[in-house]
Computed example of a mutant assay.
Amino acid sequence: MKLVIFGLTITSSWGNGHATTYRGLVRELERRGHQVTFFERQAPWYAANRDLPAPPYCRTILYDSIDDCFATYAYEIAGADWVIIGSYVPDGIEAGERVTGLKGVPVAFYDIDTPVTLANLAAGTCQYLRPELIPRYQLYLSFTGGPTLREIEDRYGAPAARPLYCSVDPELHYPDPEAEPRWDLGYLGTYSPDRQPPLERLLCAPARDWPQGRFVVAGPQYPTAISWPRNTHRIEHLAPREHRGFYCSQRFTLNVTRAEMVRAGYSPSVRLFEAAACAVPVISDRWEGLESFFAPGNELLVADGPADVLRYLRDLPETARRELGEKARARVLSSHTAAHRAAELEEYLIRAAFSY
Rank of each mutant, 00 (worst) to 15 (best):
E153Y: 09
D111C: 15
E180H: 06
R136E: 05
S142C: 04
V89G: 06
G124L: 10
P106V: 03
D154W: 01
T144F: 06
P170T: 05
V99K: 13
V105T: 08
E180Q: 11
D113L: 08
P175D: 07
R150A: 14
Q127F: 14
P175V: 06
G92I: 00
P163C: 11
G96D: 12
P163M: 13
P106N: 06
S167A: 15
K103D: 11
L141W: 11
V105F: 05
L129T: 11
G157C: 03
E153D: 09
R155A: 12
F143Y: 10
E171R: 08
R150D: 14
S142G: 04
V99L: 10
K103F: 07
I93Q: 14
H173R: 05
L121R: 04
E178V: 04
A108P: 09
G92Q: 01
S142R: 09
L164M: 05
I112E: 14
V168H: 10
L129K: 10
S142E: 00
V116T: 15
G101K: 05
L102V: 01
C126V: 05
R130L: 15
V105H: 03
R130V: 09
T114N: 08
Q138V: 07
S142Q: 07
D111W: 02
D176Q: 12
D169F: 05
E151H: 13
V89T: 08
T114P: 09
V107M: 08
D154S: 13
V105Q: 01
A119V: 12
R162D: 00
D91V: 03
T114G: 10
L164A: 07
E171S: 15
L164C: 06
R162Q: 09
T125M: 09
P131L: 07
Y137A: 04
E151A: 12
I93H: 05
F109Q: 02
A123F: 03
D91A: 14
L164P: 05
T144P: 06
E180P: 02
D111F: 07
L149P: 08
L121M: 10
Q127E: 15
C166P: 03
I93W: 13
P90G: 06
Y128H: 14
K103H: 06
G92W: 01
P177S: 12
P115D: 06
R136H: 13
A95L: 09
C126I: 05
F109S: 04
L121W: 07
V168P: 00
L133C: 07
E97R: 12
R130T: 14
R150V: 01
I152S: 00
G157S: 07
Y110K: 08
L129V: 12
P115W: 04
L149W: 03
V99Q: 10
P147R: 04
V105K: 01
A122G: 01
P170H: 02
L141I: 10
V116G: 00
Y110C: 06
A119N: 14
A122H: 02
C166D: 02
G101T: 00
A179S: 15
E171M: 11
P90F: 10
R162K: 14
Y165P: 02
L164E: 05
P115N: 11
E94C: 00
G145H: 03
P175N: 08
K103V: 09
Y128P: 05
Y110D: 10
C126R: 13
A160S: 12
S167D: 10
V116K: 09
L139W: 12
I152V: 13
E153P: 08
